[in-house]
Amino acid sequence: MQVMETETTYQGSPATREEVAAGWRTVLPACVAVVPLGLALGVLVVQSGLDWWWAPVFGAVVFAGSMEFLLVGLVAAAAPLAQIAVSTLLVNFRHVFYAISFPMHRIQGRGWRAYSTFALTDEAYALTATPEAAGWSRTRIVGIQAFFHLAWVLCVAAGAGLGSLIPPQVVGLDFAVTALFVVLGIEAYKVRRSVPVSALALGCALVAALVSRDNMLLIAMGMFCAALVCSYVLAVRRSSRG
């Protein structure tokens, strides 16, 4: 709720304030959904022996949920920096696909673009992967990203502060991330009602999980994109023939 306070002190035009408020309404469910995960990351940082303030630093600077969890483990094991670089490359490789539909054309100005690419998380991509988002203002899009960034850092810091207060008997909070992606998937399906595309993605995910669970994301995303390219080529051929 601290986020709301910064909003009331914002000295913009009414139109700008309305855009910020619209961004806030769009991003709120995602902020709520990552609360358990942020708390869990904060707890993990403290439990792995790092000073508590590293938790918000991880959250603010790396700002890539699943990679941050992995990074805590790598740092605790004193992994070489090269291994950290390669792990990041594999875990976060999916982000190269997000450029295809993210409405970057709405974001003018070097600094804004720099921040917007920096904060292009799974959630930021998912929330702007709708046709309406292609017409949203820079204020609204960057607002969504900044609110999510702030919410994430606050949750991670709170988790580190709570430390071991969450009883170890309470497990499974990370399901919130699954639920978030499922719900966002349903919303995306409402836009593009394609059973074959959904089934293809699920198939890619299952095959990738069987091939290598550790590299599942990269393999599934690569297969899915390759399959889409193939189906595009076939569609073009069919239409040129018919």
Binding site: R94, F97, I100, S101, D122, Y125, A126, A129, T130, D174, V177, T178, F181, V182, L184, G185, A188, Y189, V191, R192, S194, V197, S198, L200, A201, L202, C204, A205, L206, A209, M216, L217, A220, M221, F224, C225, L228, V229, Y232, A235
Partner: peptide, 18 residues
């Protein structure tokens, strides 16, 4: 073509990954 079909597929893959 790809961008139109990606969002729903990516969400399915991310959900399965988690």
């Amino acid at each position: 073509y790809i961008g139109d079909r990606m969002p729903v597929g990516v969400m399915v893959i991310l959900a399965a990954y988690t």
